[in-house]
Design a protein around this nucleic acid. Structure first.
Lengths: 232, 232
DNA sequence: GCAAAAGTGTTAACTTTACACCCATGT
DNA sequence: ACATGGGTGTAAAGTTAACACTTTTGC
């Protein structure tokens, strides 16, 4: 027979966030240095317990803010991890979220004492992390690679203005393979997902590239019609 | 500062299972009639609390067995639901799993007293369910529709031997649209994912259709090479 | 003038789509 | 003989993949 111990004072579930950024031609993941046991001093992804009467999605946003200073980030849930021994102090199930943002945003300043600092780490150089966080990051990467196949996720990672080469390098970093320049450009331009700006690069020691911006409106229209945006 | 109340006696999280079957040309969902408060007497998807020292995945398998008699089902996690008021007796986060099976399996016999019965319901005629289960089923359907676009999920829903028309109707039921017979067959046959059996239908008042079987080996080979199996 | 990255088109192979008639079986 | 669903091919349109040279800019 089911028994409920309610109401409770504390939840034994948590949220963890895998935040992807792209900078210097590399895919990056946002990490923190913990300032609390367990795993005090370890590197981890931002995460913490959910309050009792708190929506998990809001909890993810709050925790991310407290631990890194990031605000107004669009978070998407991707998996829950519940190995019985994943937390050294007992059973804690965690709901994992991910987001892809413009890592140019500076101001990574933990707002609480839970973490000592927050910093970007190249996705292919993640150190040993606290808890089962390596597993969580690995799964987030799979989700991202999968997602980029049918949604133009990449634009979220770039600044407002970007060159087509930057965009291409981003795809190559996520998919971990080379893409043909001409075919890539044809595909991107075909559906009008980007608009060319009049502005060009300056002070580069090679032909200046045109800047483009993502055409959100156009994307929304196409999406309604069920189109798929894939780069193979 | 984080505080942990550990060890605990009971978990306040649950698992819920959306089991898809296909029968009589219709996509079906496995439902139960509850025999316990809350929502006693209501229709719901099979679900219950997770034991303290139980892996959530194992919990899903156990709960499914107890409530419906189904065993050895491949369950896949797809989302966690954590609205603060989703459970009338307090905060309960649920991890939702789905599976696709041959609904010909009879023997739906609840093994515990939690449910009065288990039965198949057409996916497009789901009644009002307990908790937020309608929302969970809806999301599982989206996941299934998405998944069938790049994995030959359909074979899991059919008996060992099936006709190509049955397979086509299955795709049409899931994708909710008509598919061209000739093009469908060409695509299925092209990659050798199915093998024709010598056996044919009997006692049908029209030309007997050939039976086919799914070629798992071939699928595994193709998958390794990164192929995508899509029906548009 | 050279190094570095930007930008640009064509062709062949393949994939997708649309479409209509004859076949086998039971009644 | 008729009703029912099974089974089959082709051509046109569209998509993908492979591939190399010229342009612009700063030093």
């Amino acid at each position: 027979m089911a028994k409920f111990r309610l109401p409770k004072l504390h939840s034994d579930f948590s949220v963890d966030c895998v935040i992807f950024g792209f900078d210097e031609g590399e895919l990056k993941v946002l990490l923190v240095e913990r300032n609390e046991p367990p795993y005090e001093g370890w590197i981890a992804i931002p995460g913490n317990l959910v309050y009792d009467h708190e929506d998990i999605h809001e909890a993810a946003a709050r925790v991310l803010y407290e631990l890194t200073g990031l605000k107004n980030i669009f978070l998407e849930q991707f998996y829950s991890f519940g190995e019985i021994d994943r937390h050294p102090q007992g059973r804690v199930i965690t709901v994992a979220y991910y987001s892809i943002i413009k890592s140019s945003v500076n101001g990574l300043h933990p707002v609480s004492g839970y973490t000592r600092k927050a910093f970007w780490c190249p996705a292919d150089k993640i150190p040993k992390l606290a808890f089962d966080h390596n597993q969580i990051v690995e799964r987030a990467l799979e989700t991202l690679r999968h997602k980029i196949q049918y949604e133009p996720v990449g634009f979220e990672l770039l600044p407002e203005k970007f060159t087509l080469t930057q965009l291409q390098h981003l795809y190559e970093a996520i998919l971990e393979k080379k893409v043909d320049k001409r075919n890539f450009r044809k595909r991107i331009l075909r559906y009008g997902l980007v608009s060319e700006l009049k502005q060009k690069q300056k002070n580069v020691s090679h032909r200046a590239a045109a800047y483009f911006k993502f055409n959100k409106r156009r994307y929304a229209d196409l999406k309604k019609k069920g189109f798929i945006f894939g780069i193979k």
